[in-house]
Amino acid sequence: MRLSIIFPCSLLIILSLLVPHQCITPSEEKPVDIINKTCNTCASKASSNFSYEFCYTSLDAIPVSHATNLGGLGLIALELALVNATNTISIISNILNKNDSSPRCNNCLVSCLELYLDISLRLEECIDEFVSGKKHDILYLWVSEIMQATTICELGFKDDGKVSPLTKENHNLSQLCGIVLCIIDLISPHLNSWF
Rank of each mutant, 00 (worst) to 15 (best):
I138P: 00
C153D: 00
H136G: 11
V131L: 13
L113A: 06
L139R: 02
E154C: 07
I127T: 03
M147V: 05
H136W: 14
S111V: 05
L115V: 08
V131R: 13
I152Y: 05
S120F: 11
N106T: 04
V110L: 10
A149M: 07
L117N: 13
I146T: 04
E129N: 10
C112N: 12
A149I: 01
V110S: 07
E145S: 06
Q148R: 15
L139M: 08
Q148P: 00
N107D: 15
I138F: 01
G156I: 03
S132A: 15
E125I: 05
L141H: 10
L155N: 15
E145I: 05
N107Y: 05
E145W: 01
I138C: 00
C153H: 05
I138Y: 07
Q148F: 06
K158T: 13
F157R: 04
C112Q: 09
Y116T: 03
L113V: 04
S120V: 03
E154D: 14
F157H: 06
D137Q: 11
V110R: 09
D118H: 12
E114G: 10
V143N: 01
Y140K: 13
S144V: 06
G133R: 06
K134P: 02
F130S: 06
V110I: 14
D137L: 10
F157T: 04
E124W: 01
Y140M: 08
I146G: 04
C108M: 12
V110D: 07
Q148G: 11
H136T: 08
E154M: 09
V143Q: 00
Q148A: 14
M147L: 09
E114F: 10
V143M: 02
Y116Q: 07
T150M: 12
N106A: 02
Y116H: 12
E145V: 00
A149G: 02
S144G: 13
H136V: 02
I119S: 06
L121V: 11
C153N: 04
V143G: 01
L117I: 14
K134G: 07
I146Q: 09
S120Y: 05
K135P: 02
N107F: 05
T150A: 07
F157D: 03
S144K: 13
I138H: 06
L115A: 13
I119Y: 03
V131H: 03
N107H: 09
L155K: 15
C126K: 01
C108K: 00
I146C: 07
E114I: 12
E125F: 07
A149L: 09
E145H: 03
C105Y: 07
I119F: 09
Y140Q: 09
N106R: 12
V143T: 03
L121R: 10
I138K: 11
N107E: 15
E145D: 11
G133T: 03
H136N: 11
E114R: 14
E154Y: 14
K158M: 08
V143H: 02
E129T: 13
